[in-house]
Design a protein around this nucleic acid. Structure first.
Lengths: 336, 336
DNA sequence: CTGAAAGCGCTTACAG
DNA sequence: CTGAAAGCGCTTACAG
């Protein structure tokens, strides 16, 4: 392995001069600079980033933790984060929790041990080092932290989300406007913060319209296609069959639509469907799926820019950034 | 920031003893060990991983480079790699090339600068540091490298793939057995190595059955849903309409099926469809999609285990690992 | 079992 | 503009 010392020797200069030609070439006299550059070329020298990081006390690496890497919603945000990180000069480590607290803590620990400078957290679980602080009555996170796509009250850290209550309300209002009277919902896990918000929006829209609510019209999945399928099966057996379904995720909506087709019912004639997230395949579903669009790219970009600000101790204009959602109209809610 | 020195001072021992209680606690006398552990607790000490890495000259980090993070096939493999990496004690950095050579080189550089110990490469592009070596007539990669899901002849590095020629042959044979006579294909980009293999399989199966081949039955997409849709539109306008289509990716198949439905044709009655990869949503498509299953989990696991072997200089039994594929039968190719 | 000391490969004030 | 030297926070032979 060739080090800065080898280059210095070969070029007949000090290691300081080698370091300078690498970091601020304009600060070294052209003649020596060229000698150094030639030596680097000849010896195929690559400076050791670890040594540099130790000396500089920062490593321009962040870790993003997601519940599930292959989940298309999360992988979309991850992609966006990675792109901005690349542009800003950060590297990104990836950690998957699978909903397990110990895995989350394992990854969060990486910023304590300075493997990463900061943590961008997707999903609804908080690492212990953060909840410990909350329990102690403080609100400042103990590590550079940005929360994306989910909010946690009482924590003073940058946070980028959409207004899930309003988005769910919008979705259900649209079902109502399309002439539906018996509107059910397939939600995420009951304890999930997103579920709480979206359920609230669902209930608000029904109440405002004076429509019937039934507890057996509120069913829960885990955001997977399969769970949407299973949940729809339960709805089809409800005391009264719904004529519209608001699904708190496009994947669950895909599964639900499959169940409806299997039952020999036609979408949207028998049952209209609204999803959430606006995933790629939604517009190629049968029929194309009306959905609430979350601005995935902007969520990721905003989260990464917030992280950059935190790490450079720049002020953040808006600690809680609320990004706009929108309703994407497709055939699954066409008026009959 | 609290360092090992602070702990040593507080516990009244040397830094060596602190380091030992951290790395090999059984080697230090219980009394002092406890004193150290207490000091660590009290001062909330987390050892600096960067310093350790510099000293140990290894950082248990790999980088996996993918063409596109949000592509479900790649994100599935990434997930699997990350899981095995976690179990083996590695961290994983992620890099997205977007098909751009400069981005690939940027990320590959991270193992040169020792940010990562090794590189797992998904996709069909090779970094310059590798092609340079090939050009120089050597076959040994200049960095710890594992190739997943695509092969490159002439490079002596661990490689895990399926037999794409055989898999494509199997897919087309199945279309033939289901009674199809006019079989078209939607392939990936022409220059893609996967395309070369799968096209070869397609042609072999048709030739063996003595079926008609037409150049306008071979169309190309870029593996995206949208490109599958566009490609199918071209096939529907071909001189003769096919009655079976082999799609070199499930996403393209989803797009293609959408085009077929839009044309008012029924799958599989008018046109049967076979996909490739066996992505989650395939079994929830309308109709459920027959496909070639690639063992995503095993691909990722095998790649990561190979990387581990490379980094520990353990011998690798099989440099080119060929994993089994299979045909998943669903309604999109039901016999009429 | 323990500690003093060297050293991992850099960067960067400091003096010249 | 340049170099000698200190130091980033660890680990680990070595001697005791």
């Amino acid at each position: 392995m060739v080090t800065i010392r080898d280059i210095a020797k070969r070029a007949g200069v000090s290691v300081a001069t080698v370091s300078r030609t690498l970091r601020e070439p304009e600060a070294v006299r052209p003649l020596r600079r060229e000698r150094v550059q030639q030596a680097i070329e000849e010896m195929n020298y690559a400076p050791d980033a670890i040594a540099r990081q130790l000396r500089r006390r920062s490593n321009e690496t962040i870790i993003v933790i997601v519940p599930e890497i292959a989940n298309p919603f999360f992988s979309g945000i991850l992609q966006s984060i990675e792109n901005v990180a690349h542009d800003l000069g950060y590297r990104v480590l990836i950690g998957e929790t699978q909903g397990k607290q110990e895995r989350l803590d394992y990854y969060a620990d990486m910023v304590q041990t300075r493997v990463a400078d900061g943590l961008i957290l997707l999903g609804s679980l908080l690492p212990r080092i953060v909840t410990d602080v909350l329990k102690a009555g403080r609100t400042e996170p103990p590590i550079p932290l940005v929360l994306a796509c989910e909010r946690f009250d009482g924590l003073d850290c940058p946070n980028v989300v959409i207004d899930n209550v309003a988005a769910a309300t919008l979705a259900v209002e649209h079902l109502i406007e399309s002439g539906r009277k018996r509107i059910a919902t397939i939600m995420g896990p009951p304890e999930n913060p997103l579920t709480v918000d979206r359920l609230q929006g669902y209930r608000a829209a029904l109440a405002a319209a004076g429509l019937e609510t039934r507890e057996d019209w509120v069913v829960h999945g885990d955001f997977s296609i399969e769970s949407g399928h299973a949940a729809m099966l339960r709805l089809l057996e409800a005391g009264q069959m719904p004529d519209g379904v608001f699904c708190a995720g496009d994947e669950m909506a895909i599964g639900a639509m499959h169940a409806i087709r299997e039952a020999g019912l036609v979408i949207p004639r028998a049952i209209a469907m609204v999803g959430f997230d606006d995933l790629r395949f939604g517009s190629f579903a049968a029929p194309p799926l009306t959905t609430i669009r979350q601005p995935t790219d902007e969520l990721g970009e905003c989260a990464m820019r917030m992280m950059d600000a935190v790490l450079h101790k720049r002020p953040i204009d808006q600690l809680k950034q609320i990004l706009p959602h929108s309703l994407i109209l497709r055939e699954s809610t066409a008026r009959m």
